[in-house]
């Protein structure tokens, strides 16, 4: 228990918050890397997921591909890319995008596919264009599932961004590895606590967003 208190004391110490190696800087870095990776993955995977969900084509290929990506150990991808691209932030960022894509893609196509076929047919019969169907029918109906995919991707990225500190001087994970190397358990534990709290907060935030997005489907149900 004393180690735990030491870790909390370490976090509470204002001296550990300032500067380029401080908690605030590393926290922002961790958040920025996560945000960039999830946004980049979304830019790639959401349009593709919508296309697959709407046309119902290519699902098998994507599922198989995403399954294979899922089986790649994240640490392997990180170390491999670090050897190939150097110890900068580019290698982990690329790895994070690659790891986020399957979850975002799965959420996007599963969301679009979850739209009631009768609703889609009705929209088509009313003369909506395919683009209008996606925007006005399928996206609102599938928004909850789509945000669920973003949530899963974000969790994965926050966790993997911690491992990224093994190959590059990035984010909160650095405290873990510095502490590990120096056998400084309180600092290591402090890093672990900070990452865990960040992950939990992001998860709650996205869970709320997911709830809101799911309600979109119900609000459309009522309109004539």
């Amino acid at each position: 228990m004393t180690t735990f208190l030491d870790a909390l004391t370490w976090i509470a110490d204002p001296a550990n918050w300032g500067g380029a190696q401080g908690i605030s800087a590393r926290l922002l870095q961790h958040l920025a890397v996560t945000l960039v990776a999830v946004l980049a993955a979304s830019a790639l995977a959401i349009p593709l997921g919508i296309l697959i969900g709407h046309t119902r084509r290519g699902r098998g290929v994507v599922v198989a591909l995403a399954g294979a990506v899922r089986a790649i150990p994240t640490l392997g991808l990180l170390t491999l890319l670090a050897l190939l691209l150097g110890v900068g932030v580019e290698a982990p960022l690329l790895a994070l995008v690659a790891l986020a894509v399957p979850s975002v893609l799965a959420g996007a196509y599963a969301g679009i596919e979850s739209a009631e076929p009768a609703a889609v047919d009705a929209a088509r019969a009313m003369g909506m264009s395919e683009l209008q169907i996606v925007r006005n029918v399928e996206l609102p109906l599938g928004a909850g599932v789509l945000v669920g995919g973003l949530r899963a991707a974000t969790l994965q990225v926050v966790a993997t961004a911690t491992l990224a500190a093994y190959t590059s001087d990035t984010g909160l994970g650095r405290y873990l590895f510095i502490g590990l190397k120096a056998r400084d358990y309180p600092q290591m534990l402090a890093g672990a606590i900070l990452v865990a709290v960040l992950a939990l907060l992001l998860d709650r935030l996205l869970a709320t967003a997911q709830d809101r997005a799911s309600r979109l489907a119900h609000s459309t149900e009522g309109t004539p």
């Binding site: 969790l155 926050v158 966790a159 911690t162 491992l163 994970g173 873990l176 290591m188 534990l189 890093g191 672990a192 606590i193 990452v195 865990a196 992950a199 939990l200 998860d203």
Partner: peptide
């Protein structure tokens, strides 16, 4: 939601 490495350390 807790990342694996921090879990391992706790």
């Amino acid at each position: 939601a807790i990342p694996a490495l921090p879990l391992l350390i706790v």
